[in-house]
């Protein structure tokens, strides 16, 4: 199957998600193109996390379609026919969490190598060399043998990013990755993400850092009440919001 440059790597059509009677995502269409950085902003409880977690099937959508690289995503682990299962999908679509979720019983190095070795079955030496490169990139070469509970929040999150990158994903999903950090540690993590954006990594980033979003994102989507209320260039959405809701939301961050 060939993919042209204008074919989105990830497509979402008519996505909905409900928890029992609670409708959280009420019909979302979204395209993510190769090399694009999409920021997702919106008020608390608007469904940002739910949406981004649907993209790697950590949440099972109630309805709608997700297409990865031209292949329809199916809610099962194995891929089947032309469709792609969540097992294969997650090899290509990595995720970084608000609360890091590093494996506490493994060292930094083991955290990073776990996926490529256990899942991708790549040779250890090769994986470890790549892990060292990634540790250099996130500035933590000296922490390779440390356990997560000996790291600061900012260091943990940089390891978590390296762990996701070790899978060599095509897309990276980031859900409020600086929200659990002390203010003085936010910068070092954002800096790593800027670097990734600069290297052309495709990313969907849920964030409350408006200045950062405006700066790094190619497009910004404003989610409100489970729908994408506004989407466009950072310039348009953050600097010149068209709706009152978005203006009111943005006014809370003096961005």
């Amino acid at each position: 199957m060939h993919s042209t440059d204008d074919q989105p790597i990830l497509t979402v059509r008519g996505l909905t998600k409900s928890y029992n009677k609670l409708h959280v995502i009420k019909g979302v269409d979204l395209d993510l193109h190769r090399g694009e950085v999409l920021a997702i902003i919106g008020p608390s409880g608007s469904g940002k996390s739910t949406l981004i977690r649907c993209l790697n099937l950590l949440e099972i959508p109630s309805a709608g379609e997700i297409v990865y690289n031209g292949r329809s995503v199916e809610n099962r682990f194995q891929s089947r026919g032309g469709n792609i299962g969540c097992g294969e999908l997650r090899r290509h679509v990595g995720m970084v969490f608000q609360h890091f979720n590093l494996f506490p019983h493994k060292t930094v190095m083991q955290n990073i190598c776990e996926g490529p070795i256990a899942v991708l079955k790549e040779p250890r030496a090769e994986v470890e060399a790549r892990a060292m490169e990634l540790l250099g990139k996130v500035g933590l070469l000296d922490k390779r043998d440390a356990y997560p509970n000996h790291l600061s929040g900012g260091q943990k999150q940089r390891v978590a990013i390296a762990r996701a990158l070790a899978m060599r994903p095509d897309v990276l999903l980031l859900d409020e990755v600086t929200s659990a950090l002390d203010p003085e540690l936010v910068g070092e993590v954002l800096q790593v993400i800027r670097l990734l954006a600069h290297d052309g990594m495709t990313m969907a980033i849920v964030t409350h850092e408006m200045a950062f979003a405006a700066d790094v994102a190619d497009r910004v989507a404003f989610i409100d009440g489970g729908v994408i209320a506004e989407v466009g260039t950072a310039e348009n959405v953050i600097r010149n919001p068209s709706s009152d809701r978005l203006r009111a939301f943005l006014s809370r961050f003096n961005a």
Binding site: L58, G87, R91, G94, F97, N101, F103, V119, M167
Partner: peptide
């Protein structure tokens, strides 16, 4: 969730 996110099986 973190383990699933690096494509581990159940």
């Amino acid at each position: 969730e973190a383990a699933k996110a690096i494509a581990m099986s159940d």
